[in-house]
Each structure stands twice: as C-alpha cells, then as structure tokens.
Write a protein that binds this DNA or RNA. Structure first.
Length: 276
DNA sequence: ATGGTCGGCAACCGA
C-alpha cells in the first residue's frame, strides 16, 4: 500500500485501487536543485500522476530534467535565473504545453500550462506581494485580473480543469493561524481574498476545502519565525482548484507534511488531491 | 514574544 493510500484510509475514504485514482500534487520547492533528492524520493513513494512545482529558481538550461526522467516521469518547465520558475512533472506526456500568460518571454516565469489525461492543468506561482504599500502588491492584484481574463478567453468552466500552485492567498480566516492579528497582512489582505474570489467565481472549487472543514491545516510555515512548524503557526497558501465537473470526481485531498523537509528546511509542503 | 532564515549567488533581493 502506498503512503497516499494509507493517508486516504486514515481519512476514512474507501480504499480504491491505485489505477482507479488520478493523484495530483503541488509543492513550492524553493529551489528545485536544492530540494531535488526530497522530490525524487517523494515521487517514488507517492507515485502521483502529476506533481506541479513552483519556485524552481533556475534557468531552463540548468533544470535537472534527467533526474525526473530517470525516475520514470516526464517534465516540462518554465524558468529564469534566481527567481520564480514553474514545472509540471507527470507520468503521461503533457500535451499543448504553454509558458506564461501568452507565450511572451518578457514576463516573470510564473505560469506553465498543459493538458494531461484530458485535464487542463494550469500551474502558477502567484506574486507574493512583498508589502501592502509596495507596487508589488498592486502587481499581485493585477495578476489575478489577468488570470481571470486568461480563464475567460482560453478555457471552458464546464471542462475538467485544475488551477494549482502557490497562490499566495489564504482564502478564509480558518486558513491562517491568527486571523485577527494577520488581518490585512500580505497573503491575507481583504483585497487579495476578493481578487482570489473573483477568479474562483469563474467556476472553480477549492478541492482541499471540499474534503477538509477543520481549521489548523496549513501548507506554509514561515521559517523566519522560530518553531513555526512545531507550533503550527501556518498559512494555507497552496491550492488545488478545480472546475465543478472535475471537483465532482475528487475522492479526497490532504496535506503531506513531508518529514524529510526537516533535513532541508522549506517553508512549504506537499498538497495532494485524488480524482476518480 | 510582533519574532528572523532560507536559496541564489556573489551584494543583496525576494519570500
């Protein structure tokens, strides 16, 4: 039994055969080269059909594609020097791969799109925003507007589609460790939550929240705060959003606090959803 | 307690 199946059984889901499930995962790596052994190990143990990665932090010519191909996976990526960067690792060959909002070279490497197993996949690393009074905050709000436009012009809300990645917004008070104190801060500002809701209203469902109503479930812990992970001072910033036709096929979703990440501390952890 | 640590990459930036 795989870890994914064990986790599913622990969560009370019926134990289904692996072949019947499409396992989809996302992870902000904060450098794919630094986190490579952990990611390859995670793939071997969880055997997801798709793993979307953000903050790869390397140029395409420096991307460690061979390690994933050796592990039996396809990989496509869109990167730049030092910052940002996204990748899609998949068992099946991705089709119709597109990089960026419109294929232009002239923007931050934050989006990669592909079709896999009949599902439109959009993997994104949303701008963090830096500070509410920073131009980067407005850039972030504008980014959501551009993203909504992309959905409207290039996709159908009635077809199977996943929007995943580090979306850098905690949608609701239950998604941060201290909503009163954090209200108005970057990644939990009313304008960001409204911008995310505006994208969601196109026709997307929060797949993790569909299956987990409890508070205290996070995907990010700021490692600048001492003991944030052990004290669970976290935020739910990474998401798997799906159109209703696809969300109706979701069998479960869980956050995997990969213990090996303690060896090389990372702010984020793996988020997994399973579809029938 | 309002915290300070990563990664890239060669001085700080971004998170």
């Amino acid at each position: 039994m795989t870890q994914a199946q064990e986790a599913r059984r622990e969560r009370g889901h019926a134990l289904l055969t692996e072949a019947a499930l499409f396992t989809f995962a996302t992870f902000n790596a904060n450098s794919i080269r630094s986190r490579l052994p952990i990611i390859v190990d995670w793939l071997a143990r969880h055997k997801p059909d798709v793993l979307c990665v953000q903050e790869t932090k390397c140029r395409d010519e420096d991307f460690p594609a061979g390690a994933f191909r050796d592990a039996g996976y396809c990989v496509v990526f869109h990167g730049e020097k030092s910052y940002n960067g996204v990748a899609v690792i998949s068992r099946e060959e991705p089709q119709n791969v597109r990089r960026g909002f419109d294929g232009g070279d002239n923007e931050e490497a934050r989006i990669i799109r592909a079709t896999i197993a009949g599902i439109e996949i959009i993997n994104s690393y949303v701008p963090q925003g830096t500070a509410v009074d920073s131009p980067r905050f407005q850039y972030k709000l504008d980014w959501f507007k551009r993203f909504r436009h992309l959905l409207e012009t290039e996709y159908s809300a009635t077809a199977p589609l996943v929007w995943t990645g580090d979306l850098n917004v905690a949608p609701e008070p239950v998604d941060v460790y201290d909503p009163e104190r954090l209200e108005g801060s970057v990644c939990f500002h009313p304008l960001e939550r409204a911008a995310l809701r505006e994208v969601m209203s196109w026709g997307l469902v929060d797949v993790f929240r569909k299956h987990n109503s409890d508070a205290g479930q996070y995907t990010f812990w700021d490692y600048r705060i001492r003991g944030s992970l052990s004290r669970n001072l976290g935020w739910r910033l990474d998401h798997i959003m799906a159109t209703s036709t696809l969300a109706a096929r979701s069998a479960g979703a869980y956050i995997d606090r990969e213990p090996r990440l303690a060896e090389r501390p990372s702010d984020h952890t793996f988020l997994v959803a399973e579809f029938e």
